[in-house]
């Protein structure tokens, strides 16, 4: 170990703060280096001087002066505002908060449970509802499997029925009342409603080519007619 390194550790060595390998390394170096040994002596002398230095003490009567001061401060504290009774508050916050929270909770429950639901509107008001329901994409009367009404994606059942109403009015032909329950939906689900509506039925009306053809293949012309009317 070099002298510079040893001398940086000498104060710790003299104070007994080095242990293990570092202690033995410094000891071995001191055994062979007289310069570092002289430095070690200086540090040990400094240590002795430090231990012999007089310690300072407080003056006589310190305790009494201190206790007098503390007693004075305690007296002053009892005369402070903290010790005066506070006026009773007009609104007791601790009681108001739970009541306010309860009221807010009740209002929230009422609003969420009793708010009008847009889905329960009558059919006539449901037009324009763009909720997509692929279950109504095709409708096919059971006794005329060739007849397929291609219905618009996104239309509700009520919209589709309203459209069929318009088509039948355009045709101004008597239509058979077929209970709606007989309609077979392309996706094999049963229609839940039991109301019957007049629906366009093309058997025997082949002369009305645009409508029939359209209705037998595509409903584009009928759709256009229906939209023009409305």
């Amino acid at each position: 170990m070099r002298c510079q390194k040893v001398r940086s550790c000498l104060s710790a060595f003299c104070n007994g703060e080095l242990t293990g390998r570092r202690f033995s390394t410094v000891s071995d170096h001191l055994a062979i280096c007289s310069g570092c040994r002289a430095e070690e002596q200086n540090y040990r002398s400094l240590l002795k001087v430090g231990q012999a230095v007089n310690s300072y003490r407080v003056s006589d009567g310190f305790n009494n002066r201190l206790l007098d001061r503390i007693a004075h401060e305690r007296f002053a504290e009892t005369r402070s505002k903290a010790y005066f009774p506070k006026p009773a508050p007009s609104i007791i916050i601790r009681r108001v908060i739970p009541i306010a929270l309860t009221v807010i909770l009740v209002v929230a429950v009422v609003i969420t449970n009793y708010a009008p639901d847009s889905n329960s509107l009558p059919g006539s008001l449901a037009i324009g509802n763009v909720q997509s329901d692929d279950a109504y994409r095709t409708a096919q009367p059971i006794d005329n499997p060739n007849l397929t009404g291609t219905l618009r994606k996104g239309w509700t059942l009520d919209e589709q029925l309203a459209r069929s109403d318009r088509i039948s009015r355009i045709l101004q032909k008597p239509t058979f009342d077929i209970p709606f329950d007989n309609y077979y939906r392309g996706n094999a689900y049963n229609v839940s409603t039991s109301s019957s509506r007049p629906v366009p039925y093309v058997d025997g009306y082949y002369r009305i080519q645009p409508v029939i053809t359209v209705f037998g293949t595509t409903a584009s012309n009928a759709n256009k007619e229906a939209e023009v009317t409305y």
Binding site: Y56, V58, F62, N63
Partner: peptide, 10 residues
């Protein structure tokens, strides 16, 4: 106070 006054003073 007696235990610490002189140490602090030093």
């Amino acid at each position: 106070v007696d235990r610490y006054k002189d140490r602090l003073m030093n």
